[in-house]
Design a protein around this nucleic acid. Structure first.
Lengths: 338, 338
DNA sequence: TGCTGGCACTCGAACGCACAGAGTGCCAGA
DNA sequence: TCTGGCACTCTGTGCGTTCGAGTGCCAGCA
């Protein structure tokens, strides 16, 4: 359908436009890329590419810029993922190795990604849905007041206050704590409900109410915290967006403040492999002139969460994809170690 | 030194400029404010105000705009704090009352403040320095691996892994847990070190190493976490900054990403009462064209942390101060209740 | 059939220029 | 001490011109 050379022309247009931020013309193209043909020929090719919707002219008699469809083709067929240089890799590893806890890992990852790609970075906290329970702790704060602490294998800790229907003795508490742990430690969150279902029955009548309360709070925590958290960074990179800046940046900043939007954005990314959403492919209308590059990461084979960057559609896709992939890989390693 | 009327002129200039974002001239002033004098008189007053450094002209034959010094005088002597309307107050209370945990309180506060002031909001998490210990929990994850969980009276939870020099029995663990809690619960963080100082001595030789390790991790956590956390929001309000937008917004976004900078910013605010830093009064050079309005908040009389907003020097000071004060007050109440 | 050089055409960006409008400073008079 | 008047100084805007990059098309050539 499109000859080899025309694809080459498209690739050249994308590369030049990403570099210069200005519409690129036929003459400039032949000068910068050894295409082996004259500007006139390139012009013909450009006309075809425009007919097919891969490139467009901002106004008559200006150069061409790639359309979303053009970038899509570029990403799918014309560009690979650019691997990072080994100094870069070392830098990533060193930087991430210094992290002391989960917050720190996520925080460092965000900064790293923002710096590497010079774009806005978004990192999702390891999801609880796929996590397993490392420990459940129950503390007695007052006669009829307990605190539930849930510790996950990814190092996350959640706590909840519980007001009991009746005072709950220390022995009962120790009993519940022991039984609870023996059942759920090492198990997945999603499995917990059925594992604890029959627990109240094995307690004395007077304690049953409290045990039920504790369990319902526990289950609630599991559900509630599946609603995932994010960290973002590098928003100052938005200033490199372009000239028509204020009008572009506004909706992006707004979208970035809405966790829901971001979660959906990352959520759309498929589990395996890298996802690139270009311009209007993004559902959210504030982000129609941005692209999102996202990938899952995890401690083992399975992705426990996602991370990615948000930038102008005119971005260096190979480089960005390379950075995102590399960072995801290293973060996975770090998580696996801890 | 400055006559009553000249102060009145300054006030009018500030108000008009804040409203219109455009330099204000003598004629427009006399039309919008019943000053009772002619434009010519106002012009003379303006000349004096300019000599004194309270206002300036962007270029010859344009209107005047207030200088930082002018805003300072306005805030100190010409403007009060504008109380919120009672619907606004109710809205604040309703919104904050819905919070379920500390993160939620802080998150809601940030959003509220950003929305109310239409500026960038910064809220510091309740500081641990002034907090007291509600509970210390020790869990055994593996024979020689413990987890320390620290719960504060403001509802914050911190956890740390501890690798013990030697296996530590369940009875010793229970013993240490009990003694630790009996000593530090209800006490201030700053008092903890001396309270636990002699604790290792009361243990068997073989356990002493582990106890010391646990204590050092505990103390480390106290110190480390005194390094405070923040939440910011409303960055999209930066787009309302002005025309010379890109050049202004860049350093602000950068500064906002540096927790250290923000902490210093809030830290500069005096403990009691509201602090307003105008333009160059801010040490950080990226923020020389912004003003910071900050105030401490706390559950009792004492401030445990600070919150505030960052906006253009050209801001509605009375309104902003009113909103900041009101929000701080309600957050304090919420914290006191929980 | 596909590539090339040539040529006329288009349109936006940049420049110069004139002009209106807003604002000032200063001065003389009440 | 205030006021009205007046000359002056800017900036912003609109308009016409020019310049140049870039295009589309066509005829010719391999």
């Amino acid at each position: 359908m499109l000859s080899e050379r025309r694809l080459e022309v498209l690739r050249a247009i994308v590369q030049d436009y990403v570099g210069t931020e200005e519409p690129v013309g036929s003459k400039a193209l032949t000068e910068r890329h050894r295409l082996g043909v004259s500007p006139a020929t390139v012009r013909n090719d450009m006309a075809v590419l425009e007919d097919e919707g891969f490139i467009a002219q901002p106004h008559t008699s200006a150069g061409r810029i790639p359309t979303d469809k053009g970038y899509r083709l570029f990403v799918d067929r014309l560009a690979g993922v650019k691997p990072l240089s080994s100094p870069e890799r070392r830098a990533i590893q060193n930087f991430l190795d210094g992290a002391v806890d989960l917050d720190d890992v996520v925080g460092r990852t965000v900064r790293l990604l923002a710096q590497l790609t010079r774009q806005v970075a978004v990192v999702q906290y390891p999801s609880l849905t796929r996590s397993t329970v490392r420990h459940v702790e129950l503390l007695s704060l007052a006669p009829a007041r307990l605190m539930l602490v849930l510790i996950t294998d990814t190092g996350r800790v959640e706590q909840r206050m519980i007001d009991c229907p009746a005072p709950f003795g220390e022995t009962s508490l120790a009993d519940l704590r022991a039984r609870l742990n023996s059942r759920v430690v090492g198990r997945r969150f999603t499995d917990v409900p059925q594992l604890v279902q029959d627990l109240p029955e094995s307690f004395e009548n007077e304690d049953r109410g409290t045990v039920s309360t504790v369990l319902s709070v526990l289950l609630e925590t599991l559900v509630e915290e599946t609603e995932e958290r994010l960290m973002i960074g590098g928003t100052s990179n938005l200033t490199r967006f372009g000239h028509d800046f204020p009008v572009m940046i506004r909706p992006v900043l707004e979208a970035l403040e809405e966790q829901v939007v971001l979660l959906k954005l990352l959520g759309e990314a498929t589990d395996s492999g890298m996802t690139v959403r270009i311009g209007h492919e993004n559902a959210h209308e504030g982000l129609t002139s941005t692209s999102v590059v996202a990938v899952g990461y995890g401690s083992g084979d399975e992705a426990v969460a996602k991370l990615g960057v948000v930038g102008p559609t005119r971005m260096d896709y190979p480089g960005t994809m390379g950075a995102v992939r590399a960072v995801a890989r290293y973060v996975g390693q770090i998580l696996a170690e801890s």
